[in-house]
Simulated scan of single mutants.
Amino acid sequence: MELNLAPQASDNTLVEVDGVGAYYEWTPAKSPILKAGKLGAGKLVLQPRGFALPHYSNCAKIGYVIQGACRVGIIQEEEEEEVLIISKGDAIPVPLGAISWWFNGGDSAVTIVFLGETTRSYNPGRIDYFLLSGSMGLLAGFSSEFVAKTYHITEDQAKKLTKSQAYPLIMKLDDQIAMPQSHQPNYINVISIMDCHDISAENLPLLEKVGLSASLVRLHPGAVLRPSYSTDHSYRIFYAVAGNGKIQIVGLNGALALDGEVEQGQMFAVPCFFAVALIAGGQGIDLFSVITSSRPKIGDLGGKLSPWKALSSSVVQASLNVDAEFVKIFKSNLVI
């Protein structure tokens, strides 16, 4: 597989409004692995009073709050609207087709990165959004006649309904609009990944439906993320929340597919069965990752769970073509 696996910063601005916020995305043009793996990545930034209009997408994804806090409204399968507050370190799954809105009611910016799969996207490698309102909204596409008959209103009222909101995705709300408060304080589908580091269907049941899982890796300066690989067909997509490091990815026939560096704000993806390893730089590094499986199976090439630890010493000796004393030293260092 010859793909450009190099870490990349977002390369497209879908929408940006001064003083309100923006939505940035990674595209297959710069990161072809997204299309090959049917992955998607985007980043939402909302300034105080910034509001992302209600929408849904044909992509299951997990949002991770990098900074700040915001209010989120979610409707799943025609259920009641659930309103919750998420803050830095929280991860929130957004199921395929779920309707959501996002509002920053605080006094500082909020940034959320979304990683997911785009199997059903019209543009593989990109997340397709469908807005309920606004200049890019679904209602704006229908004629006044259809809208009037649907909602039992006059055509003039239909024009007001579909044309009043001129913003395409995000807008700034004035203080006169009181947004709903959280009424789901024990909402079980939000989890602080900073506390547990890994979320899957085992500790967040909604992920069984979403079909994804996530993890957060925090490495001190010079620490290593040992070589690991997915033992099933899962792809992994990573976002560097903070810091920097060196990264290597090895693929088919032991070929080094990537030997480079990753820094804060960049995204990279690892094909299924490829092995990835990372050494944290002088700042250390925090990595948020999403795996395209609700119950991921990851193989570790180092440590006590390494296959080298499980293999009998004679097999290791023959496989590496080394002497027995080296095997003893090698296996005794496979710890943690």
Score class of each variant (00 low, 15 high):
193 I>W: 01
193 I>R: 04
193 I>S: 04
194 M>K: 15
194 M>C: 13
194 M>N: 15
194 M>Q: 15
194 M>F: 09
195 D>L: 11
195 D>T: 08
195 D>G: 04
195 D>Y: 00
196 C>I: 12
196 C>T: 09
196 C>W: 01
196 C>A: 03
196 C>M: 01
196 C>R: 01
197 H>M: 06
197 H>P: 00
197 H>E: 03
198 D>H: 09
198 D>C: 02
198 D>A: 05
198 D>M: 09
198 D>S: 11
199 I>V: 15
199 I>F: 04
199 I>A: 03
199 I>M: 06
199 I>Q: 02
199 I>R: 03
199 I>W: 04
200 S>D: 13
200 S>K: 02
200 S>A: 06
200 S>N: 10
201 A>N: 01
201 A>G: 03
201 A>T: 06
201 A>H: 06
202 E>C: 03
202 E>F: 01
202 E>L: 11
202 E>P: 00
202 E>T: 10
203 N>R: 06
203 N>E: 08
203 N>P: 09
203 N>I: 08
203 N>G: 06
204 L>R: 09
204 L>S: 09
204 L>T: 11
204 L>M: 15
205 P>S: 13
205 P>V: 09
205 P>H: 10
206 L>E: 08
206 L>W: 07
207 L>G: 04
207 L>V: 03
207 L>I: 08
209 K>G: 12
209 K>P: 00
209 K>H: 09
210 V>G: 05
211 G>Y: 08
211 G>L: 09
211 G>S: 07
212 L>G: 07
212 L>D: 08
212 L>T: 04
213 S>L: 03
213 S>Q: 07
213 S>K: 01
213 S>V: 02
213 S>T: 02
213 S>P: 03
214 A>R: 03
214 A>V: 07
214 A>Y: 02
214 A>E: 05
214 A>H: 03
214 A>I: 03
215 S>L: 03
216 L>T: 01
216 L>M: 10
217 V>Y: 00
218 R>L: 00
218 R>V: 05
218 R>A: 02
219 L>M: 08
219 L>I: 04
219 L>D: 07
219 L>E: 06
219 L>W: 05
219 L>P: 01
220 H>N: 13
220 H>G: 07
220 H>K: 14
220 H>I: 00
221 P>Y: 12
221 P>S: 14
221 P>W: 12
221 P>C: 14
221 P>H: 13
222 G>P: 10
223 A>L: 03
223 A>F: 06
223 A>I: 02
224 V>H: 11
224 V>D: 14
224 V>E: 14
224 V>R: 14
224 V>M: 14
224 V>I: 15
224 V>N: 12
224 V>Q: 14
225 L>T: 07
226 R>F: 10
226 R>G: 15
226 R>L: 13
226 R>S: 13
227 P>N: 11
227 P>E: 11
228 S>A: 14
228 S>Q: 15
228 S>W: 12
228 S>M: 13
228 S>Y: 05
228 S>I: 11
229 Y>R: 06
229 Y>W: 10
229 Y>P: 00
230 S>Y: 05
230 S>F: 05
230 S>Q: 14
